[in-house]
């Protein structure tokens, strides 16, 4: 309901239109009306009632527009609230639990999720034409990226197994493809816990813990803004490595991986791109070191405490 008020209590006349009673101000006035206020002073006060009502009609028309705008803004605000509510905050890194290394009776499985094929990513080339232009400009590099070997990464699972075995851990290889995205979701566990339920591996393989290497991006990347390259390509690998308690789905170790490396010297050396290829294998080695070193370095501490 709209209230139209003619207030003569101040130095100037005020004709205000407000919602009632929500924005009704103190002393029964429209002082706090946030939407719309039509103000006239003594000089601009219409000389007769007809013109005053015309003026108020204009005011009401403006009020309608203002209200429509407010409704739109409220709608956008509500949508943003909904969307941000849906976004899950990323899992922060979790240091390797030292108890894991000292508990020698734990049975640990080592698994690797299905690895994507190496390729060239062109982030920032978003429109269809941009993608076509960027892909055409980098076709040789893209073809080369597809020929890169992932054998080094495939061996990482066996290397992790060997490192843990050296420390006297009861460890087995889980050869089944993990298909993490097809595992059932966990509910309400929050930060520090997996979003998927890995407990089925406990029964299937008789495990207490599962160490997972999950690679979700590998190859080269070159940033774009629409049609324009924003820098030289880089070798890249991304994913996670984590150790999970299969009873509680709690992370005992969580290592996010997002590694990049440019070339030493020239990068544009088709068709074998030796500089970038070298960087690619250096990135894989860096990933290997980051996964193996926490397991390796802490081993002597575990031996001492035992």
């Amino acid at each position: 309901m709209f209230i139209i008020e003619h207030n003569q209590g101040f130095s100037k006349f005020q004709y205000a239109v407000c919602f009632e009673p929500v924005f009704w101000g103190p002393n029964n006035q429209c002082g706090s009306c946030p939407f719309f206020r039509l103000e006239v002073n003594e000089e601009t006060l219409p000389p007769n009632r007809q013109e005053l009502f015309q003026l108020m009609g204009t005011g009401l028309h403006q009020l309608k527009g203002a209200l429509q705008m407010q409704v739109k803004l409220l709608g956008i605000f509500a949508l943003l609230l909904t969307l941000t509510g849906c976004v899950t905050p990323p899992q922060p890194p979790v240091s390797l639990n030292a108890e894991f290394l000292t508990a020698s009776d734990n049975r640990i499985g080592v698994a690797m999720d299905t690895m994507p094929s190496p390729n060239l990513q062109l982030p920032g080339a978003n429109c269809l034409l941009c993608i076509a232009v960027a892909s055409g400009a980098n076709s040789e590099l893209s073809a080369h990226a597809k020929t890169l070997s992932t054998e080094e990464l495939a061996q990482l699972k066996a290397e992790v197994l060997a490192v843990l075995k050296e420390q006297g851990r009861n460890v087995i290889l889980v050869d089944d493809p993990l298909l993490i995205n097809k595992l059932p979701k966990t509910k309400g566990l929050g930060e520090g816990f997996a979003k998927r339920d890995f407990s089925s591996f406990a029964e299937q393989h008789g495990l207490d813990h599962l160490l997972v290497i999950d690679i979700n991006g590998i190859g080269m990347t070159r940033p774009y803004t629409s049609y324009i390259p924003m820098g030289a390509p880089q070798a890249t690998v991304s994913g996670t490595a984590f150790l999970i308690d299969l009873q509680s789905n709690k992370y005992e170790w969580y290592l996010p991986i997002d590694l990049h490396l440019g070339t030493e010297g020239e990068w544009d050396e088709p068709k074998d791109f030796p500089g970038l290829t070298n960087s690619y294998y250096q990135v894989l080695e860096s990933l290997r070191d980051r996964v193996l070193s926490p397991l390796t370095i802490q081993a002597p501490i575990a031996q001492i405490t035992e």
Binding site: P123, G124, T221, P223, T225, M230, G231, A232, Q234, T236, D258, L259, H260, L261, G262, E264, Q282, V283, S286
Partner: peptide
Amino acid sequence: LSSEVSSNGAGVMYPG
């Protein structure tokens, strides 16, 4: 010294 592996990619945002 050669460049080291970094944990973030390179990129520049331009006013558009």
